[in-house]
């Protein structure tokens, strides 16, 4: 049994014919070809796969593509506007918020929601806000710094 799924990915309406078991992360990676959304675990722990669904951070490995039908999905590839990097992306670059880069898309997408909730989020609030994201490289220090700075600098 297959299903039709219509969703907007990074502002572009797309339609797919999928098995109901297809996970949103696989739809994005294999069907849309947006491989920026990484998959780091199989128990929904790492947050590498985080995307925005109707503006909210979700783990795309824990959403069925059919559940996302009709939703607006923003991935790391669609975060920046026409005028360059999103402030959170820029801040990760400026503050060495990444090493291997694998957790980075998920970190950035989560950071967008953290700052959306509180643009003035401080160190402790950001550390708490990242409880669903794992980075094995950076020790989080510069990720936290990047997010706090992006907020204080005034992001969307």
């Amino acid at each position: 049994m297959r299903h039709r799924v219509c969703l907007s990915v990074n502002g572009k309406a797309e339609e797919f014919d999928v098995e109901p078991r297809l996970l949103l992360c696989h739809l994005l990676r294999a069907y849309v070809g947006l491989t920026g959304t990484n998959i780091g675990c199989d128990t929904s722990q790492c947050g590498s796969c985080t995307v925005l669904m109707d503006g909210k951070a979700v783990k795309s490995c824990t959403v069925l593509a059919v559940q996302a039908d009709g939703c607006e999905v923003t991935t790391i590839e669609g975060l920046a506007g026409a005028d360059g990097l999103h402030p959170v992306q820029q801040s990760f670059w400026d503050h060495h918020g990444l090493q291997c880069g694998f957790c980075t898309p998920g970190m950035i997408m989560t950071a967008v929601e953290i700052l959306d909730r509180n643009p003035d989020a401080g160190d402790a609030e950001v550390r708490h806000g990242l409880e669903g994201n794992i980075c094995r490289c950076t020790g989080y220090e510069n990720i936290v710094k990047s997010i706090v700075a992006a907020g204080a600098g005034g992001t969307s």
Partner: peptide, 21 residues
């Protein structure tokens, strides 16, 4: 010096093996 490899990672353009299709 700011890392020259970063732009591709922060924009989701990392070239990991799992992306090869």
């Amino acid at each position: 010096v700011k890392r020259v490899e970063d732009p591709r990672f922060i924009q989701g353009k990392g070239r990991y093996v799992a992306n090869i299709q």
